[in-house]
Amino acid sequence: MWKSGLRKYSAAASSTASAGNSTSISSTLLLTRNPVITADVSKFEAQYYKYQNELWKRLMWTFPSWFYYRKGTISEQAFRELNPGPVFNNPNIEFPRGRPVVVHQRDRRFKQELKLPKTYKEVSQEKKEGGETAAEEEGAKEDNLSRQIVPNSRITKADESKDLASLERQLSRTLYLIIQENSKWTLPTFKEEQVAQGDDTKDSSVTPLHTLAEQGLYKIGGNSINYFNVSNTPCHVHKSESTREYFIKSHILSGRFVPQSESIKFLWLTKEELGEYLEKDYYKEIEHLLSDI
């Protein structure tokens, strides 16, 4: 069977490994907010998708209107009114751009364009042109069950007001939590409370790194955070002469970070923004852990 023996990554256990000297172990929390909406595509990508999509439509089969709109029904009549057939290949007419090849009410030289019931954009534009007030629209929204579905904006209020502490900013990007306690911005790092020497061997004194991170998070950010710990295994270790910082990766699922003391400031930042706030060497070291999207 797969070796599933739980490996304990604990602060005390590692400090015994570096026996004697005063290396302090701490747990650093890489708390992320995953992207909520699809990624922003570059101009080239957008053009590529559009090109492929048009090609796809060009090669599509004719829409089987005879299946969805039975002959002689009212819906068929409505469909025909919306989608009048193309000009047929009249032998008495000269077609300077080539003769139409019509099969099943479709000119097969081109992609088939069907007119469907109006989109929300068209409807809202029409309403604006008609001079309907916003209040009337809202009233219609409330009581009309079959109201148009209008997607929310990709740019939120937090983006507009440049509120860096909001979880609702940069919806298409991954955000990381950083805090400031003593005039220096860092990822939240929690040291284990000092254990009397000799106690290290006892299991009761051992705090696993992920538990340490959890306790620390609740201590500084309150209990209203619902988070998901990806793994008890640290994903990175930051070494300096006297410290070992183990990175524990988690995602925030709901709730929010509420600083428990007034001295704590916090921000939710994207990868590029982290580069501006963190120390350069430190950022360079952890850059590969951060998501580009």
Binding site: N34, Q52, N53, L59, S291
Partner: peptide, 22 residues
């Protein structure tokens, strides 16, 4: 030839950007 990348793939994006590293 049949075009394949006809629109942005939301599920695959989620897999590549979030799930894979996790």
């Amino acid at each position: 030839y049949k075009p394949k990348d006809v629109y942005q793939d939301r599920v695959n994006e989620y897999y590549q950007n979030v799930l894979k590293s996790d």
